[in-house]
């Protein structure tokens, strides 16, 4: 079975500035893979290259066996139909209700009629637990609800791969845990491959089958393994990421 994503010799950067060099990795169909690492290691840069927003400096990216980097416009559109993306801020269209946010790509890129689009969009909202809020505008929703609505929109065209950029960022631990459960449930029920950029250790443990750890000092991949294996790794840089101790204030350690 071909990998959902196959990356070979991928170097990413901005202009002359190299951020990641010669990455090689596969992401298998149905997996939940997290891309993790410290701030500035290139997590979001890698994601933006994987979804074709920026051209890499070198290397190839195969999405479901289709080359993304050298694809012409038509092939590129076909590849983009296979992926859904949730951006860090949600990036919902503020002038549309969340139902209309989901209907928009369905109306443009699916042959369904209006009634079918309406049913399908409402069911996407049911999947993320927002069915009752269909007519709400993004500004009327909490941060966690906006993220869930953004996931529903990313799922609108039934993508085979879902990319989530920092889904837990800015959320309280309870909402963050609920979102993790949703991601896991989507992976299990929808059969979709999910790539999540995050540095939340709790999220990584809760959702990931495997994790790709990037490191700024080597401008590349430090380790690829299961979260449990990474947490037990002997490499000091991996261990430091997973077990970085924060000094507790006197008297609070026993409380937390």
């Amino acid at each position: 079975m071909q990998p959902a994503i196959q990356v070979r010799g991928l170097s990413c950067g901005w202009g002359e500035r190299l951020i990641l060099r010669e990455l090689d990795f596969d992401i298998h169909t149905g997996e939940v893979v997290t891309i993790l690492g410290g701030s500035g290691c290139g997590k979001s840069t890698l994601l933006k290259h994987l979804i074709g927003l920026y051209p890499p400096l070198a290397g190839s990216i195969l999405i479901q066996g289709n080359e993304l980097v050298s694809a012409d416009n038509q092939a590129r559109e076909q590849i983009l139909r296979m992926i859904g993306v949730m951006y860090q801020s949600g990036a919902l269209f503020g002038s549309l209700s969340i139902l209309d946010n989901i209907k928009l790509p369905l109306g443009s890129f699916s042959p369904l009629d209006t009634a079918a689009i309406d049913t399908l969009a409402r069911l996407k909202l049911r999947l993320v637990g927002l069915e009752e809020f269909a007519d709400f505008y993004p500004a009327e929703l909490s941060g966690g609800m906006q993220k869930r609505a953004a996931i529903a929109r990313a799922m609108a065209l039934d993508p085979q791969i879902l990319f989530l950029d920092e889904p837990s960022a800015g959320l309280d631990p309870v909402t963050s845990a609920e979102l993790d459960q949703l991601i896991r449930r989507l992976a299990e029920t929808q059969g979709v491959t999910i790539v999540v950029v995050t540095h939340e250790l709790a999220s990584i443990a809760a959702i990931a089958d495997r994790a790709i750890m990037l490191d700024k000092s080597i401008q590349g991949i430090l380790a690829i393994d299961t979260p449990a294996a990474l947490a037990a790794a002997s490499d000091p840089r991996v261990a430091h990421f997973f077990h970085a101790a924060r000094p507790a204030r006197a008297g609070t350690a026993s409380v937390l």
Binding site: T119, R126, L127, E131, T189, Q190, G191
Partner: peptide, 19 residues
């Protein structure tokens, strides 16, 4: 089985809420 899994995720016993 795949179809059932997808359908069950939509909770088919619950009618769609259309205000």
């Amino acid at each position: 089985a795949d179809g059932q899994r997808l359908l069950q995720a939509l909770n088919p016993s619950q009618p769609l809420h259309i205000p």
